[in-house]
Design a protein around this nucleic acid. Sequence first.
DNA 1: AGCTGTGAATATGTTCACAGCG
DNA 2: CGCTGTGAACATATTCACAGCT
Lengths: 227, 227
Amino acid sequence: MGFRVLYPGSVPPSVSASTRVVSESSVRRLSLYLRVLEELAAEGERAVSSEEVAARAGTTAAQVRKDLSTFGSFGKRGLGYPTRELSIHLRDILGLTRSWKVVLVGAGRIGAALFEYPHFRDRGFEIVAVLDADPGKVGTRWGGRRIRPVTELETAIREEGAEILILTVPAPFAQEIAERAVASGVRGVLNFAPTPLRLPAGVEVNEVDMSLELEALSYALHSRRCR
Amino acid sequence: MGFRVLYPGSVPPSVSASTRVVSESSVRRLSLYLRVLEELAAEGERAVSSEEVAARAGTTAAQVRKDLSTFGSFGKRGLGYPTRELSIHLRDILGLTRSWKVVLVGAGRIGAALFEYPHFRDRGFEIVAVLDADPGKVGTRWGGRRIRPVTELETAIREEGAEILILTVPAPFAQEIAERAVASGVRGVLNFAPTPLRLPAGVEVNEVDMSLELEALSYALHSRRCR
DNA sequence: AGCTGTGAATATGTTCACAGCG
DNA sequence: CGCTGTGAACATATTCACAGCT
């Protein structure tokens, strides 16, 4: 299933307010392109070809052009894409010009790793509350932020106006917490619990399932015994 | 791109030693089905329909049957699939009947979280060495396992016969370490560094890019402002 | 009657190839 | 002349729908 899109600011191609479907894989590639462009900008490149972006992002030039063309015409024929300008467009498209308030539930090891993950803050994701069910953890501090009891989930979300939930709790608790969060205003969930969430349509859920990734590796290595 | 497959043990449909392409998403779903089946087995269910599996795995009954049918006929018409038996088949297909030796490079927070992640060990992934470049970390112990200097990467992989690398180092170091690991015998990489790896064909790489996931959320929420 | 296994139909995603602008 | 932007061709993945066991 893909995302619905309202063309962002610049150059809405012909049909105004039209919605087109953009695949999730395309969106992920756009994030990658953004990273690549920032790298290139840092290296002082003022313009860049789809070829070059593709090489760094691990895809093809045609794919890069297709992905970008969904949102407008950002390049100049014969010249390529203006590095800095295109990153701005991409940030815009991805909704990274604003900051996002995030509530983190689950103050275990994974939660701790994510709390400290520098790339989140760099991109405007601000963890405004950390909650846990374990009374032994509640009240302790992570970098000056007090861990709150998960009973305060609704309060915390409303107080802070958080729209994103990061879930790093054991699988059996994930569904219930996600439902409560959504009822309190959360519209997007990044789920690290190894279980799929069933949430109302309109709530965006991304699963990050590390066991699944390892098992996919296992499958690949196992089935290739032959070659 | 999909995985090549040598039909595992049971019921190789007609063409023997034939290779068929199985999509990555299908493999991931198989992992999910396995989890679901184990859950159902624990609840005492002896047989289960594709419908039931689908509901718990968040997909459709047709999808479940298609995914399974790639590897054989495990069900009985009118009855469904035998719960325990099918899990065994799935473990077999996914290569989870053996254990896998894993080297972890990067003893930061993410590395620590993964080191402790119980589901890895449960599935037969054994972390046989932890390495880091930081002299301050080298020599300290994680649960009785000494953190080794990353200079010992080649030695560690060969000594232990590790085939899988989990990479949790900063992006600029990822490519070089991955290359060295592959040169020393690693065939599969689970990459948490936020940069795509370019490795020789035949080496399986799975990227887990948490920023990308959050940015995809951001995109979805941002573009839906309209609704 | 119930539920699987699977071709055929559909939908989605990627690559090709080239017209057209800078 | 180079490189983008894009329809058209191709490839892949999902869903449908039903024949065929149990």
